[in-house]
Design a protein around this nucleic acid. Structure first.
Lengths: 210, 210
DNA sequence: TAGATTGTTAATCGATTAACAATC
DNA sequence: TAGATTGTTAATCGATTAACAATC
């Protein structure tokens, strides 16, 4: 199934919206309920679903429970996903402590750093030397990693993760990484996101003046 | 100038690439140097530039210095942009301490929280009660805010920022905020980004098997 | 001059939206 | 049955890519 990122992001949003709707007592939903909820058109919802073979009932909409289940299967959320973090600086630390992941079925299994003062083998989420990554990842068969190290170290950490058998990476270092092999890299660049806000604010102010 | 987000993101990337190229000694660049650097096609580079009235020299490429200057002007980076953060939890804290912003001309001017134990009026970046946001923002004419508060508080903080005169927001709360008036909201949803990586890893594994 | 590169126009591509037949 | 909603096909839209004349 080849689909684009924004389509998958919409599936996640549908899923989140459905949990809210279910909490409100909804048992079935129509494409326009979901469309309203995430801010797209009803035909977009139906199109997305048909792309993944999700079907509802003509005139009867979709059953909330089974829809959530199907979306979770597609998104790989039937089981808890274990994730490791490389780099225990500001961002790595925030991610480690962030409570939002747990309720999404994401478990931070360990953090890795080069600074030995940060090591703590016995804490809830162990902090280990980078050199132990391969052993840990292989033993636990972990597929997902987060890169939160300084820019200059990011490429070598990606290479290390690739060598460990990590299959997907969320990268916070603000530079383009060269991926070798078939590893998926998704970049989050906070400076760029802020710069983007600033551009559109300035653009809006200019159009208002003119 | 109405353009889409990905075009502006590319402008930021060109700019970053140009700094690197300049550091390597480049005085002029061609569209295919820049294309290589950020991973697009040369015609994309020229198209983007022509959209913003940036022109080079036929056969002579673009002057690095003046190109950087023009991009910085477009991106609103001629002067330091002051930013406030609402919410001093894990993410807010990481952003406050993050060194990457400073060298991008972004200054965190203050943080706001409801927890009085976090207040520190005299630190380098003051931490203030939420109620003082309006006064602070108006006095300093701040236009950009970051929302890093818990989900349930996010909408009310956006409303507060709107009331303060904030024009652009980077939102880390994983839910869709309703913007009133002409405020720009850019959402960063870390759970969604991770979920996305997981989906594509699973998708890739499936195609490899078959 | 010949060759290289821009800037712009046209073609392509893919994603979103609209329309509507099928049907519950 | 009449009305509402899906699922899919066709139309639209916008962004990316290719092509090429202009020109340095």
């Amino acid at each position: 199934m080849i689909t684009n990122k924004s389509c998958i992001i919409r599936l996640s949003r549908y899923k989140n919206a459905l949990y809210r709707l279910r909490a409100l007592g909804f048992v079935k939903v129509f494409s326009d309920n979901l469309a309203d909820a995430i801010g797209v058109l009803p035909s977009q919802v139906r199109k997305d679903f048909s792309l993944f073979g999700i079907s509802g009932n003509k005139r009867g909409g979709y059953q909330v429970d089974s829809l959530i289940e199907k979306l979770n299967t597609i998104l790989g959320k039937e089981q808890t996903q274990e994730v490791i973090i490389a780099g225990l600086g500001n961002i790595g630390n925030a991610l480690m402590k962030y409570k939002g992941f747990e309720k999404e079925g994401l478990k931070i299994s360990a953090c890795f750093d080069i600074d030995s003062t940060k090591y703590s083998r016995d804490s809830d989420i162990p902090v280990l030397p980078l050199e132990e990554m391969k052993e840990f990842v292989r033993a636990k068969r972990i597929k997902i990693g987060v890169i939160a190290v300084p820019d200059i170290a990011a490429q070598s950490v990606l290479d290390m993760m690739t060598a460990c058998g990590i299959k997907g990476v969320l990268n916070f270092a603000p530079l383009r990484l060269r991926a070798s092999g078939d590893i998926v890299v998704n970049n989050v660049n906070l400076e760029l996101e802020l710069e983007n806000v600033i551009y559109f604010v300035n653009a809006q102010e200019k159009t208002k003046v003119s």
